[in-house]
């Protein structure tokens, strides 16, 4: 008995060691990123592996946050603002319009509903990278190429969001809406006042997924704009990584900028991760 106990303890320790090692491998790139963003240019190229910057240099972060030195090629504060404004507008639009459509598809009996739902499901299957040329074509034809409307309008709807919200609305008891209707509430009032508050987890999930999709979006903004004034953090960062900077590697600056791009979404995710886990994954598997 004690022999067996001994063996299982050893195995437990072993699996812990393995797991911790794996966790470190998963986190190592971020730790190295943080450490090297605080080094001098030469030190980051010569001593990549050292986790303690010596000497500490804030030059990269100062440029990224727009403190001190002139903006130059890389106007990070502007990119940050662009990312924020565009992502927020897309998020608000998506949450409102997706939930409206999702509600209609779940609950309202209108002629052609089946057709509309079929279209939504069909667009779910369209691989998004094959849409780059089509979307470039249409915003050019509409005269909104290289503008904020051109960046925002095509991203205002996503079929996944409509589908997700429809699934949430299907779970709300019908009796609630009937009661509201008997009280004389119109369709929109019923939706806004009665049903929407019932699907809060769905709205939170959709908000986070939409914000993440817009904030991390790169491919679409790459084809939708051409002027540096419309750079977001992703397109701007990609531009300097691909050689938009005049001199040297400047890894501390690039790594700091990459960190700035990563942090907001990461924070959002970890604050709301309970909701996401519950809704997105449990249901995807259990149905």
């Amino acid at each position: 008995m004690s022999h067996r106990h001994h063996r299982s303890t050893r195995r437990k320790v072993l699996s812990y060691v393995l797991l911790v090692a794996f966790a470190l491998v998963f986190l190592a790139p971020f730790l190295l990123q943080l450490a090297n963003s605080l080094k001098t240019d030469g030190n980051a190229t010569a001593n990549e592996l050292s986790l303690v910057p010596h000497p500490v240099s804030l030059a990269g972060w100062q440029q990224v946050l727009g403190i001190g030195s002139a903006a130059g090629v890389a106007d990070f504060p502007r990119w940050l603002m662009n990312s924020l404004v565009v992502s927020l507008l897309i998020t608000v639009g998506r949450v409102f319009l997706d939930s409206l459509a999702g509600y209609a598809l779940a609950r309202l009996h209108f002629r052609g509903r089946r057709l509309v739902f079929g279209l939504v499901v069909a667009t779910l299957m369209v691989p998004s990278v094959t849409l780059l040329i089509p979307q470039f074509l249409i915003i050019k034809q509409l005269g909104i190429f290289n503008s904020y409307p051109g960046m925002i309008l095509p991203m205002l709807i996503d079929a996944t969001g409509i589908y997700l919200m429809r699934q949430f609305f299907l779970q709300v008891p019908v009796a609630l809406e009937e009661a509201a209707r008997i009280d004389g509430a119109g369709t929109f009032t019923t939706y806004w006042r009665v049903v929407l508050p019932m699907v809060r987890p769905g709205l939170i999930t959709l908000t986070i997924l939409s914000f993440q999709a817009a904030w991390n979006q790169y491919a679409f903004f790459l084809v939708a704009t051409v002027s540096p004034q419309y750079f977001t953090l992703t397109t701007g960062l990609a531009n300097i990584v691909d050689g938009g900077l005049s001199a040297g590697n400047q890894f501390p600056l690039k790594l700091a900028a990459a960190m700035l791009t990563t942090v907001p979404v990461a924070v959002l995710f970890f604050v709301f991760q309970r909701y996401l886990r519950a809704s997105r994954f449990d249901a995807a598997v259990k149905g």
């Binding site: 319009l97 997706d98 409206l100 459509a101 509600y103 209609a104 598809l105 309202l108 009996h109 209108f110 052609g112 509903r113 509309v116 279209l119 939504v120 667009t123 369209v126 849409l131 089509p134 979307q135 249409i138 509409l142 309008l153 095509p154 205002l156 709807i157 079929a159 409509i162 119109g186 369709t187 929109f188 939706y191």
Partner: peptide
């Protein structure tokens, strides 16, 4: 109501996708 609710989404899907 149903058509009013889906028309913004449908419009955007048609114009920017189909």
């Amino acid at each position: 109501g149903g058509w009013l609710f889906v028309s913004p989404a449908l419009g955007i899907l048609m114009v920017f996708l189909v």
